[in-house]
Every structure is written in C-alpha cells, then in structure tokens.
Design a protein around this nucleic acid. Structure first.
Lengths: 283, 283
DNA sequence: GTCGATTACGTATTACGTAACAATT
DNA sequence: AATTGTTACGTAATACGTAATCGAC
C-alpha cells in the first residue's frame, strides 16, 4: 500500500526530472521528497533511482513505476471527477426543447418546483437528438411539436405558438390581413439563430429569402426596432406591448407555423413529474 | 487527493456492507472507519451514505464511488505487481531449450557467470515457441538443434547428442551392433515425458511402439534399473558408469537422432553474452 | 442485552519544514 | 557561489485505539 501523495510525487519526479523542481511545483520541501522516494523504494523493495552524490535520476524500473503512477493518478482523479459530476447531475434537472418559447414557460416552473436544483435546458433543432437524449437519461423531459405515441412515453400538450410576420407599415405586404410563407419569397428577413425547429422550417418554406442572422437576442430586438426589415414574432414572443409603432404584425395562414408543444417524459418517470404537469396545465 | 488507505476502506465497505465487518477484515477499529468515511465525504464534498442512527449504507453516489475505488485499487496493485515483477525479471536470466541435455551444461555456466541472478530455464517441445520467446524478450537465449540463419540472430554450435537404445541383454535386438528406429516398432519402451523435441520425434519415428511414460526422472531411472524394458539413453545422459550390468547400449544409425545443439541469441545481445559463449566453447 | 455507529480524547505515528552538510556545476 | 541531494532533528498533523454514548433490533 503506497499512499497517494507518494504516487503523485513519483509521477511529478518523472515529469520534472529533479527533486528541487518537483518540490517547487508541489509546494513541499526537497527533503520531504527525498524521504518520500526512499520510502517508496523501501516499500516496493526495489531500486527506482540511479544516485550520484548530487544527482538522482529514475532508472528503468523507476520509469516503469512512474508510468504506472500516472495510470493510478488518472484513475484517482477520474474517480473524483465522476463522483462530483454524478452529484452535480443529481442536483440538476435537465431537459431539451425543440423551440425557445416552451422553455420560457417550463424553466421558471421547474426552478420553483425543484428548489435548490439547477435547471438546465438545451435547445435543439432536431427531434431525434431530443428523443435519444430522453432515452439515455440526458433529459428528464423533452418538448416537441408532436406527441410520441410509443408506449413507453407520456406526452401532454401544454402550449400553442403561432407565427406572425412583423412588417414595416411601408412594406408592400403590410396591408394584408394574413400571409402565406411563400409570399415572403425573395425578402430580406431578420432572424435569430437559436430558435430550434423554426430556423430550418422557415428557411425551407420561404424560398430565396435572405436571412439576416443575429446570435444576440437583445441585439436583434434593437435592430428590429430601428430597421425597416421584416422579422418574425409569435403569439408568445411578444411580451406586454413591445410592438413597435411603425410595424404591423400579420398572421400566417400556413398550418406548419401554427404549432402545439408537447411535454414528453418516460412513462416510468411520470409519477415524479406530476407536479410539473399540473403546473403546465394551470397556464 | 484522497489517500490510498481511505480508497481501500471505501472499497471494503462496499464489499462487506457494515463498518464493523470491514473493521474486522482490515484489522482497524470501527471509529477509524467512521472518521475515514466522514473525511472522504468531506473531501469529495458529497454525501456517499444514507445514515440512520444505527445503520450506514452506501447511497447511489457512494456505490459509484466504490466502483471507482475498486478501479483505483486495481491500478494501484497492478503498479506494485508490475514493478516487482520487472525487478524480478531483471534479476533473472531466462532461457529456453528444445531438449534437456543442453540445460545440464548451460544452467551451471549461467549460474556461475551471473552470480546473484536467478537462472530460469524453460524446456519446450516446439521451435516456434522458443523463437517467439527470444523475439519478445522472454528468453535471452534459446537452444535449438539447428542455427537460425536470419540476420538478426547469432547462432553457435556447442553440444553434440546422440541417441542410444538401452536394451536388456535378453532382448531379441541386444546383439545388434547398431539399430534403426523402425526396428523398435511395436516394442514397449520406457520414456520420460519431459524431453523436449525427442518426445515427438521418437513417437513419430517408431510406429506402433507402446511408450510407458514417466514424469519423475528418479522414478524412471529406478524402473529402468530393475525392469527388463527397453529405454533411451544418449551420450550425455549417461553420467559416470550408471549403465546397469544387465543392459546393453546400442547406437542408432538414423541421422535424425544424432543432433547438434546451437545456442542462439539476438545479435544485439551478443556483446553482453560473450562470456557465456566463451564458456560454452571451452567444453 | 447485544450490536452497530458515532463522538470524545489521549497516544503514536509520520510527514513535514528548517538547518546543516556534502558534492557537483 | 549557486545548485542539488541527503541527513538530522524538532514540530505539527493526523490516523489510530480506547472508552463512553446513543439507538435499534
């Protein structure tokens, strides 16, 4: 049985070459190292060093021991990392969503429901990634625009989101009572880059449009306010009356951009999530 | 940094369940264990146990930690084992031989030449096993009945061995001046089981013979002395005049059983083995 | 009452730093 | 002179055992 501190010191000796350098980096004295290495040789019953009066170097056996010391220390640190990570995970409620809007509703509820736990939300553009994450335990729940009908899942509708176009009053389409996506063909449109499935949806359905992407939500809102460029809003993206005076908000007729969100969990976890589902029903 | 003794204790707790049982098996007191586990939780900053007043059990995190502790301890013991094994190896001169006779000559020489080192000899029936062993460093030298002509090897002939038949004077072939292997077809023959290549050679070349195998050399010699059954000897297997009075020793004509032995090493090691090769030449 | 875990306390081990020394550069 | 490793010695940290306490079976 070799104590950890000695194994660590051996690894450091192999790495830094001289005892004095190791003493510096480990913040201990040189004599302490001398004794540690002597003790190590003693416990193993083996010579690990070539010693001249003023020089100590690992011999072949010592290098072997040092390589093994590295392995032991790696396992050691991996143990600490894994345990602390598992602990962190156990204190984290992690979920994934196909769009940002549901997260605005779900995250506050979870924070209140699981007080003291970290709520971690993950916005994805792809259904499959989310379902896989739910299966492997990465996510406790996922939010999609459709239920999962397989027996092992439980799905519950909880939110409705509908897309609108925000147009300058001067825009050629600003007078329309409603729009179709294809009407926007060829337009310049301001768009946020982190909007889950919406991103690929509108890019696919509005041909030849030029999307001006913004990564920062606050920046995007600022530009929307000041620039005469079309942009998107939804029934839930408009908080209060933040609608700029010089713009009009026109609904789309297309059914693809009128979606319902479903909160989905594994059936085996439904029990412990009743509080969440009740809270979602309230709204 | 968790000291080794704590990791070991954690692994033991997972294995034995209660602190008191662990205390017994590790020969320490229960309080020591209590403190160790408290210290462990403290260092990791994580709860590893469910504690009732009188009972302590690993929780999920604790079991994870214990599994990792096993891994760490395995790496730990593997380090000690590997280093001590390498040390032992470095103090051992290991060689392989295709037959026992050369070993009787080589081992004493090596013992004298490498005083303080262990001489380990390995009798094999198969050339390939020996060559592989030489290549991978298992053997410093090997002894075959032929040289290895590849550039990387150095081969040197050093011993001649010739097979004889030991027959009771009453045997039908006892009067012959020489024999061929096939003459022994159908005979009962006493044979030692650990004689390297000889074993398969005579079994192949003497059809239908019934070989009476003995594992113990001393037992075999005793039986040879008292029983009227044919057996083998060679020019080097007869030490002094141990030839029983009532037996005759008849040479074989077959060239297969008149062999020369070659002491073979890697060319890169020839330098350090000059003393050995000189000593072999002397005889 | 017995058994298992924890706390309190004194002891023994031991890893540490400082200081002094030796030898090499 | 500066650097590096070793030895000697006193100190501080700490792991240990014993004894006492508390609860549960």
């Amino acid at each position: 049985m070799i104590e950890t501190y000695i194994i660590e010191q051996l690894a450091a000796v192999a790495k830094y070459g001289t005892l004095s350098r190791v003493a510096e980096t480990l913040h201990i004295s040189q004599p302490a190292l001398t004794r540690s290495m002597q003790k190590l040789e003693d416990e193993l019953g083996v010579k690990l060093f070539e010693r001249s009066k003023n020089r100590i170097t690992l011999n072949k056996l010592g290098e072997l021991a040092a390589r093994h010391a590295e392995v032991v220390m790696t396992a050691h640190y991996e143990m600490i990392r894994a345990v602390q990570e598992a602990d962190r995970q156990s204190r984290t409620f992690s979920y994934g969503s196909i769009a940002p809007a549901p997260m605005w509703e779900v995250t506050p509820i979870l924070s209140q429901l699981y007080m003291g736990m970290t709520v971690s939300s993950d916005l994805q553009e792809n259904d499959d990634v989310l379902v896989r994450g739910l299966d492997d335990g990465t996510y406790k729940i996922i939010i999609l625009t459709h239920p999962l009908d397989e027996e092992k899942y439980f799905s519950c509708e909880f939110l409705h989101e509908k897309l609108y176009m925000l147009l300058p009053k001067s825009h050629r389409l600003a007078g329309r009572p409603s729009l179709q996506l294809k009407d926007l063909a060829g337009e310049n449109i301001l768009i946020h880059s982190k909007i889950g499935f919406w991103y690929s949806l509108v890019k696919e359905k509005i041909p030849d449009a030029k999307f001006l992407e913004q990564h920062e939500l606050s920046t995007l809102r600022e530009i929307v306010k000041t620039a005469d460029i079309p942009s998107f809003e939804t029934n839930v993206s408009i908080v209060g009356d933040s609608l700029p005076k010089n713009k009009v908000m026109i609904p789309f007729d297309d059914s693809e951009v009128d979606v319902k969100f479903y909160c989905i969990c594994k059936k085996e976890n439904r029990q412990e999530l009743t509080a969440l589902y009740s809270a979602l029903k309230m709204n």
